[in-house]
Structures are given as C-alpha cells and as structure tokens.
C-alpha cells in the first residue's frame, strides 16, 4: 500500500489561453484531513476533477492511491467525492438517488441505509430531494461521497449551507474518518474550519502550488505580535513613536497598535508605555490565523505576479 494518497508531477491543464492548473507537483500523505485552500478560480476544482478522471490533464502525471490517473477505474471504488455542489435527480428521493449509484458501484442496499444514517437523513430518505433544504441537499451530497466507504474522500465546501450544529457534526465526522486511517481532502473557504480540522494543507493560487505541507509548518509562517491599546486614543501616535525608538515596528489600526515583537516581551512594552506616562487599556498577544497567513501568502503571490507581469 502506497504511503501517499495523491502524487502529482508537473500537472497542468489549459483551457485555451487560460492555465487552470499550472505545473503542480505535490505529494499528499495518506491518512488525516487535508485542507485544499485557494481563492475562487484558483484551480482547486479543476485539480480535483483531473484526479477523479473527469478532466484530462494537458501535461504531467498523477497517481491516486498509487494508481495512475490514466486509468481511474483502478481506484474509483476507493474514492468518494463531493465536487462544487451536491448533484442529484431532484424528482427522486434521496434513497433512490443513492440506490442508483449503489447499483452502479455494485454495493448492497444496506450501504444506502448506512450512509443515510451517517448523514442523519433517514427520516426524509423517501421524500423527493426537490423538497429538501439546502443543508439536507448538502448532507445527501456527503452521503453520496461516503457511499463506496472510500479510502480517499474529497469534499468541496462540505459545510456549505449547514447550520452550526451540522457544521460541528460534519467536522466530527471528518475527524472520525481520518482517525480510521482514511484520507479526507477538504476544500473550503472557511479557513477557520480547516484550521480546526486539517493536519496538512495545500495552497493553490492561479493554478500554481504555493504551499503543500503540514499545517503546523504553514502556521510557523504566522507572524506573532502584541496588540496595544492606550487608554486615551490621542496617545496612540506617541506610543508608536516610542516603540519605534526602541526598535519595535508597529502598525496602527484605529486606536490599536500591532507591535511586531515576541508576545513574551509584552511586559517590556508595558514598562515603556508607563515610562512615558501612557496608561494602556489593553495589552494582548496576537498570533496570525490561517486566514491571515493565507491572505498574506496569496497577496504576496499576487504582488509578485503583478511585478513580474509589469517587468515583462
């Protein structure tokens, strides 16, 4: 059994002049929750479709569960996916939608009941899907992805339309599946969700790979600092000059200063402020979230792209 869920090498897909996936080479380990992150139109869905055999690459190679994507039939029964939005026949019940796929995959009827139970749709399983709420349709989409009891599960925005309780349930389900040794790839724009669940992160922008590695490694790029708010807003500018004189860079947002120092040095900031007779209302350590790191990373990439384009 291969140690990698997905391996790509120079994977590229062009649609005319548009390069949707640009020379992506990465290795995604087996097991755990993998976050696939990128702005809209960054090539996440195209990459997923290539891996599932729905779209052919223009160049490059890839393997899914150790099998080449040139023959998806060799891994199709190990992979389940929810791409972009749930797909279903609206005038059929959830049970018959699932049964149609179960028949095609050669799965027993009992599996349909199992996945309906997992996503908590049993009570409405025999109603036409057109009568479902958005969240229920999303659950059905997840049930369809779970149907083959996959080793590799790929879910695009799985918590779309779910209420807070549903989001918690899905997050818990993903963690359970990963704990079972499965690989769960989750594409989401809710980065806080991924931060809570992902072990490994892949960041894509303009079809190109920006980062692929453990979440902890990505978060090491997160800048730490201290947020400082003087009691009197008028003191904010004076405080910034004071910190600058000490060699501590800061940026002002409203009345709050974000000082780029190790949070361990918060007491030094306080003492410096007191020395200048400035009373602080708030002094709080701050670490960038995944969202901050992502925005920073994609903004830097965008700036670089623009610079390169201008230079060209």
């Amino acid at each position: 059994m291969t140690a990698r869920a997905i391996t790509t090498s120079g994977l590229t897909r062009r649609f005319g002049d548009l390069v949707a996936v640009d020379d992506v080479s990465l290795e995604i380990p087996r097991g755990g929750v993998i976050g696939l992150v990128g702005p809209n139109g960054s090539g996440k869905s195209t990459t997923i479709r290539i891996l599932l055999g729905l779209i052919r690459p223009s160049a490059g190679t890839a393997e899914v569960l150790g099998r080449p994507i040139a023959d998806p039939s060799r891994y199709a029964d190990r992979v389940g996916a929810l791409i972009e939005s749930p797909a279903f026949i609206p005038t059929l019940s959830a049970r018959r939608n699932l049964a149609s796929l179960a028949l095609l995959r050669g799965l027993p009827d009992t599996r349909v009941d199992e996945v309906l139970h997992i996503v908590d749709l049993r009570d409405r399983a025999d109603d036409d899907v057109r009568t479902y709420s958005h969240g229920m349709k999303q659950r059905l989409g997840i049930a369809m992805a779970l149907l083959p009891d996959p080793d590799l599960l790929i879910l695009d925005e799985p918590t779309n339309g779910l209420d807070p309780a549903g989001i918690v349930e899905i997050r818990s389900l993903l963690k359970r599946l990963a704990a079972d040794g499965r690989t769960v790839i989750v594409s989401s724009h809710l980065l806080s969700e991924l931060e809570a669940a992902a072990d490994y992160v892949v960041v894509i922008r303009f079809g190109a790979l920006l980062f692929a590695g453990p979440l902890a490694e990505l978060m090491r790029q997160a800048r730490t600092g201290v947020e400082v708010e003087p009691e009197h807003p008028a003191d904010a500018a004076r405080l910034a000059k004071l910190f600058a004189a000490q060699g501590w860079a800061s940026e002002m947002t409203g009345d709050t200063l974000r000082v780029q120092v190790d949070p361990e040095r918060a007491a030094e900031l306080n003492r410096a402020a007191q020395g200048a007779s400035i009373v602080l209302r708030r002094l709080a350590p701050r670490t960038q979230s995944l969202e901050d790191v992502f925005l920073q990373m994609t903004t830097v990439a965008a700036t670089t792209d623009t610079t390169v384009r201008k230079a060209a």
Partner: peptide, 22 residues
C-alpha cells in the same frame, strides 16, 4: 461506518453484487 481503512489490495467485503458491470 467501517472501523478501519481497507487496503487497496484487499477485496472489499461490502461489495455484494456479482452482476456484470454492464
């Protein structure tokens, strides 16, 4: 839910249908 991931090289016990794919 099955309690463990299944190796690619193991037959899937869940597959019940022996009908031809067509």
């Amino acid at each position: 839910m099955a309690s463990s991931a299944i190796s690619l090289d193991q037959p899937r016990t869940m597959r019940a249908s022996t009908s031809p794919a067509i």
